[in-house]
Design a protein around this nucleic acid. Structure first.
Lengths: 224, 224
DNA sequence: AATAAATTTAATGTATACAAAGTACATGGC
DNA sequence: GCCATGTACTTTGTATACATTAAATTTATT
């Protein structure tokens, strides 16, 4: 009984955070499209809450860069421009490479094993050709590297940057022609970290992000 | 007359943003001390607004990491722990070094001249021994480098990270024993960028941040 | 018929009201 | 004298009401 109460305690989330997560999910999955207006009353009715939690959620999305505010007109889902994408990925490449370097220094044996398993799981996921499965396995692999850095701020920033291009990464893993390259890239990253070779790890991660960038840029071009 | 209206248009800021800036300023200058509770009604009365803009401002401060939320208890000014500081500065060192590298590639002649002027202005500022003047000159110098990267996301992230330790940097520039070292460090950075020597620039900036870190860490130790 | 002005509509920005939860203090029992 | 319980008060969380402004539609005029 005490456990149940405890669980309920842990599960408590203010409505604003529920709304925040819901809207973010909607944006990242593409359900809410770039340029789409986020009207408070409409969303409030849709989600069955009042305007207050909606507004507070939008404030957070605003600071995260997922929505932009137009004065006296409200919020809309942020457009991703090529310039914007380049800025995000330029920083992401650097921070991901940095994370890989730190991982070389700090990853413990247990995490090494997890990484090995995640790399193998990723190759199996590729075989399924199911984009959702592949995307999840990909995230799991990178999460192990990130976590091993033991730098909470770095983890937060990289996750946030990844989020900015999440909508496009999903399309990326769908593309079967890149599958072999993805496996190869993950192997390179894994090998570098196991050997604690910081320079190689940074290079491998850099190449990985570069390929993502190319793919996403093609998508953006195709869209307009 | 039209100009006045236009000006008023430009000056328009929702109250939430006014409150946001006010509270942030208060936290960064140390007027609002770490651990201090931010009570909505109290702040609303103090600033002469209702709770709504206060709450929305707090949501943004929350995401920026300047305040932390305690469920059903409200917001308080974030404590800086040694671990937190290390995490922030570790990332900052990397991103600042990256910015310096990009500056080597992208800085144009006009910005080079501005940087030279800013470096000289900094040395003059040191002579005044006025911490406020020194801090401003320091920010101006770094802003020129940042801006030359032409990466808006990088600019935003570095500014945010700098903000996290702003409270302590002010104390840092007060310390006269570090003044000569500061001048030397700025000179190194300036020279590296003028020569477009990316490796040297990254090294110089890294050393600069390292020294800041040492100073801030001493302050934190002295406080408890 | 086209354009401009006026009116209506709908959305945000702000304030206030109400509900629920947590805290502190006082009172009573042991 | 100390601990437990209950009550009042404070504070957050949420909803709603009011004010202001921008957009849309309609009407009138040329």
């Amino acid at each position: 009984m005490k456990d149940m109460l405890q669980e309920n305690m842990d599960e408590y989330l203010p409505l604003r955070d529920v709304v925040f997560k819901t809207l973010r999910q909607g944006i990242l999955t593409g359900e809410l499209k770039p340029g789409e207006r986020l009207m408070e009353i409409h969303l409030a009715n849709r989600l069955g809450v009042s305007r207050t939690p909606i507004r507070e959620a939008i404030r957070k999305l605003e600071l995260e860069g997922l929505v932009i505010m137009i004065p006296r007109r409200g919020a809309e889902v942020a457009q991703i421009t090529e310039k914007n994408l380049q800025d995000v990925l330029e920083v992401r490449r650097e921070l991901d490479a940095f994370a890989a370097k730190l991982a070389c220094q700090r990853m413990n044996e247990e995490q090494m094993n997890q990484l090995k398993e995640a790399a193998e799981a990723f190759e199996k996921a590729i075989e399924t050709k199911d984009a959702t499965v592949i995307a999840k396995a990909d995230v799991a692999f990178h999460d192990i590297i990130l976590k091993s850095t033991e730098n909470d701020r770095l983890i937060q920033l990289v996750n946030n940057l990844a989020e900015q291009v999440y909508r496009y990464r999903f399309e990326y893993v769908k593309d079967k022609t890149s599958h072999n390259r993805l496996i190869e890239e993950h192997r390179n990253i894994y090998e570098s970290i196991v050997n604690r070779d910081e320079a190689a790890a940074a290079m491998a991660v850099g190449a990985h992000v570069d390929n993502q960038e190319k793919s996403i840029r093609e998508q953006l071009r195709a869209m307009k």
